[in-house]
């Protein structure tokens, strides 16, 4: 017993909250792990930051971080963040949102915050379904997938959240999968250092629901393999035919530009006639 090693990044967590409540094989634990690595490498203290989770499995990630956090309402993460950033512009705000939270119920907030270039980091864990509620179809569910509310397959096309964010005005957008552990960590580091709206989408395995209903397997490794088969890296995109890319999500750093950040809807420059 004396040889038990304590993970050095446990200092970022609330020990009384552990063990976490994620299903075994869920990608949310991996994302939390990558995130604490990013914090450590940047020497950032979560106690001097604010973290936000809405509702859903992903929204539970920041509950385990020792930090000020807002939690428990579905889809309004970016509205909370807007108020915080207006009062404390220098306070780093990081949002963990599932695909349902961010682009279903919270879709308009996401689009508008991206347009305004609100200075926040959004980590979207895309497990391709509503998991906490039992595996219903989401706007990110691949077409024809069987879920609890698409027994005959999903007849709706899926969102490409990264393209949506770029079109809306986000200034830093990347997509990776839970299998890309170094890339995820580095993407989060870039996001934490970026001044403006960062969206890091991480395609993640939900063996409990999406795996079992859509893919016919509850084995997390098999779900990760399926995700790998249904994504491709931007760096190798040229060597892949358009036919092979069809129905697959590209992964990589899509976009990173500098643009003035949001400071309010109307701001006095000091030159106005009084």
């Amino acid at each position: 017993m004396a040889d038990i090693k304590i993970n050095p990044r446990r200092k970022y967590l609330r020990p009384e909250k552990l063990p976490h409540f994620f299903c075994s094989g869920c990608g949310c634990g991996q994302v939390l792990n990558y995130y604490t690595q990013a914090l450590e490498e940047l020497d950032m203290d979560p106690e001097k930051m604010v973290h936000i989770g809405g509702v859903g499995c992903t929204a539970r990630i920041p509950v385990y971080i020792k930090t000020d956090m807002l939690h428990g309402v579905h889809g309004r993460t970016l509205a909370w963040a807007t108020g915080i950033k207006m009062m404390k512009p220098d306070l780093p705000v990081v949002i963990f949102a599932g695909d349902g939270d961010l682009v279903s119920i919270g879709g308009n907030h996401m689009i508008q915050a991206a347009r305004r270039n609100l200075d926040v980091t959004v980590v979207m864990v895309d497990n391709m379904n509503f998991a906490m509620t039992g595996g219903q179809v989401a706007p990110t569910t691949p077409e024809e997938s069987v879920t609890m509310t698409t027994p005959y397959g999903s007849a709706e096309p899926r969102f490409d959240t990264c393209r949506l964010a770029i079109a809306a005005g986000a200034t830093h957008v990347e997509r990776w999968t839970t299998a890309d552990r170094v890339q995820c960590k580095d993407a989060m580091k870039r996001a934490l250092q970026h001044k403006g709206f960062s969206l890091i989408e991480i395609v993640s395995q939900c063996p409990t629901h999406y795996g079992r209903y859509a893919l016919g397997t509850g084995d997390p490794q098999k779900v990760i393999d399926w995700i790998k088969d249904h994504t491709y890296k931007l760096t190798t995109a040229d060597s892949i035919s358009e036919e092979e890319k069809s129905g697959k999500l590209p992964c990589g750093e899509f976009y990173r530009v500098s643009r003035p950040i949001y400071q309010g809807t109307t701001v006095m420059s000091g030159k106005e006639d009084k």
């Binding site: 000020d68 807002l70 309402v73 309004r76 509205a79 909370w80 963040a81 807007t82 108020g83 915080i84 950033k85 207006m86 009062m87 404390k88 306070l91």
Partner: peptide, 10 residues
Amino acid sequence: FSLAGAALAG
């Protein structure tokens, strides 16, 4: 909701 965030931020 932005009011909630701003209120918590003082």
